[in-house]
Design a protein around this nucleic acid. Structure first.
Lengths: 201, 201
DNA sequence: CATAATAAACCAACCGGTTGGTATAATAAT
DNA sequence: ATTATTATACCAACCGGTTGGTTTATTATG
């Protein structure tokens, strides 16, 4: 008996290949055969680890979001003491992340949400949960900033966090269509400018 | 001989059905058979009007964007004299449009851009063109507003228009995933607040 | 030996697209 | 005005290929 199914390197490889393919081609356009070929495995092997393509989809989604989440938590900006600096660091980090040619300039989460929300309700729910989760992480820094820089202000940090996610996803989408990554930076700069008016009066 | 192929009611029906199906299910998840069944026609008929599914995709995209475009041009807000009021009218109009249960709260343009940019380069180009076109329309009002309310300001109305499109598309995406249309309104309210700081000092 | 991992062959359903053909109606020739 | 011609509109059946998924068997491994 080999070690448990859960963390097999083969499963990891299937996940990673699926992530790569689905991030660039989307879910529907990526076939199981394609994933198997990329991983140098056969379908029998694939269905040994994932009972269906949809289960794989969910796993890939979690896999992607978890890694994004960890990238943020481990990034240098996240350790900054001053919440306002940390807040701006957040934006700069995202700009750099999507500017870097080493990374894909796609968001698999946004991709899945757009493509599968109407046809795969369970995946839609999962996307919604991940969006909420990511917004909450941003909201923490936002709340700290508010407490320090604009404690009196009437400001809905919840909806502002959602707004941030929307700006990010929207600009990624636009950048992809126009093949111009600069759009992400410019759009986030406008968002930063908005934050400045809220916290630097 | 009936009148030319171009404006046949049958073709119109295929287009409209394709739009409906693709707007909710996406491009890949919508089969030609499905469209034919919805239109009460057969595949032979379909391929008489469209040489391929991709050609249909392009036609549906243009069909959707043209109607969106006309909705804006014909909306009451668009006739307002004061550019600032027209600018705000723009935002309110979008909020109402996507709040109304009669309309789909999806954007087919955003959907296609997300789903097909990497696999269908010609459709990607078309999406980019439409985005540019819509941004330019917004920019006109923006430029007028700037001229009247903040002529001295150093303000990149081009990138601000792109930012608007990004906010719109991003919030639509988020609203879809979370099944909460209120997100669009809240996000556009933040954007409006940002515009206020630029033009109402 | 028992169990998990991988492979190979296979399957029914479905995909986009083609075929050959018919019905219809406008045009041209008589 | 009647007929022959031609182009369009539409359909039912079908095609080869691909899809997600299964089955059965072989190979490793503990």
């Amino acid at each position: 008996m080999r070690k448990a199914n859960e963390h097999s390197p083969t499963k990891e490889k299937l996940l990673e290949m699926a992530r790569q393919l689905m991030q660039t081609q989307g879910y529907s356009a990526t076939s199981v055969d394609q994933i198997c070929e990329a991983a140098g495995l056969t379908k029998g092997s694939f269905f040994h680890y994932f009972k269906s393509k949809e289960k794989l989809g969910k796993a890939v989604l979690d896999y992607y979001v978890l890694s994004s989440y960890q990238m943020i938590l481990e990034a240098p900006f996240f350790k900054k003491k001053d919440p306002l600096h940390r807040l701006y660091g957040y934006l700069d980090f995202m700009v750099e992340r999507f500017k870097d040619p080493a990374n894909e300039s796609n968001c698999l989460l946004g991709n899945f949400a757009q493509e599968l929300s109407d046809t795969h309700p369970e995946i839609r729910t999962r996307c919604a949960g991940h969006f909420t989760h990511l917004a909450e992480l941003f909201k923490k820094t936002l709340d700290e900033t508010k407490a320090s820089y604009a404690p009196e202000a009437r400001l809905d940090t919840q909806s502002l966090s959602d707004h941030f996610i929307a700006v990010l996803e929207g600009s990624i989408l636009l950048a992809k269509a126009k093949q111009d990554k600069g759009i992400i930076e410019k759009s986030l700069r406008h968002f930063k400018q908005y934050l400045k008016t809220l916290f630097e009066k």
